Amino acid sequence: MHLRPVQFVDTPIGHADGSVARIAGGLQWFAAYEVIEGRTRRTIPVADVAKLGDRATHLHAVITAPRAALQLGERTLRFDQPVVAGILNVTPDSFSDGGKHVEDPAAAAAAGIDMAAAGATLIDVGGESTRPGAAAVWEGDEIARLVPVVERLARAGAIVSVDTRKAAVMEATLAAGAHIVNDVAALLWDDRALDVVAKSGCPVVLMHSPDPKKGGHGDGGYANVLTDVFDWLETRIAAVVAGGVERSRIMVDPGIGFGKTLAENLALLNSLAIFHGLGCPIMLGASRKRLIGALSNEAPVDQRLAGSLALALKGAEAGVQILRVHDVAETVQAVKIWRGLRDQSLIGG
């Protein structure tokens, strides 16, 4: 059984006690669940969830429980409203901004600081492209690209996450001041990665892909992409917790664009709220991705801002806590407007 929050409401004011619930301690309230059991789907009021048994009761408790804030040195990362993570690539070949900051760590760090000044809560730094067909990068080169940038950003007071699959890179960048590991392979690509994260105590983002060992862009072969991705992440969270990582320090990412067709990506985006049932903050990385071009007359990467904003707001509406984007200032402004509208609606205005 899986539960997806549906029938979102503007405010709990005027609703009977127990007839609406709050998603993960955030700004969104909902009145019903879509109950997914195999190929069957039905909708029930929130008030009736206990009638479905222990699994549903557990999922409801997890979906509605507030997500604990993370204390990262002197900085606090809160999850009670959507925040923006700025993408900073120091690669020659990333699909959107590859080559922009290669071999110039000072300029790269300055770009990250500009993102923070524009409202990014954290900066996600990557030294290896994960686009389809990208060549693997030797860990020594990846470390050389990342460490000088991470050191500068950390000294400037930014929360830094490092987008890497490699244990040695995790070790080097955490030692340089990074706070979070963001692994597109969910700690499966490198056999030492789980141990590194567990021993460091750092938070980690686990992203879904159908074949992490081979780069994550294979054929998913999904029976139902929504529940298959949920189940995969649920199993992976359990394994990572068993490996010594505190559950409260795990975030999840459904992996938009990784081993999914256009239809599968859209199904995930339309049902993002189901992933609150994992009990972890959700990161959404859909910025400038191929699906935007596919839906907008093959718009090139540098002309996908409007589509990226639409997807970011779709995530905010579903209660996603972290929006990973290239266009920080524009997304921050969009989220501020969305937040203003939510604040007004929550008081019944």
Rank of each mutant, 00 (worst) to 15 (best):
V204M: 05
D211L: 09
M170P: 08
P203Q: 09
V162D: 01
C202H: 11
V169F: 03
P210E: 11
A185K: 14
A172E: 00
P203L: 07
V205Q: 08
L187I: 15
A175G: 09
L206R: 07
A172K: 03
K199D: 13
A176G: 11
P148G: 04
D211G: 10
L174V: 14
G201C: 12
C202N: 06
G157K: 01
A158K: 05
A168P: 03
A175S: 15
V197Q: 08
A156T: 02
A172T: 04
V150F: 03
C202M: 06
V205I: 15
I159C: 02
D163S: 02
V169E: 03
A185T: 15
R152C: 02
P148H: 06
R192S: 14
T164G: 03
V181E: 08
P203M: 05
A167I: 10
E171Q: 14
H179R: 11
H179V: 12
A185D: 13
I180R: 10
C202I: 05
I159L: 01
V205C: 13
V197N: 08
R152L: 09
D190E: 14
N182P: 13
A167K: 03
L188S: 14
P210T: 06
A158Y: 00
V184H: 14
M170T: 07
L146K: 01
C202L: 03
K166I: 10
H179M: 10
K166L: 04
M170S: 01
R192F: 06
V162I: 09
R155P: 05
V204N: 05
D211R: 09
G157L: 07
D183C: 11
D183S: 11
I180T: 14
S200T: 11
V205G: 07
P203N: 09
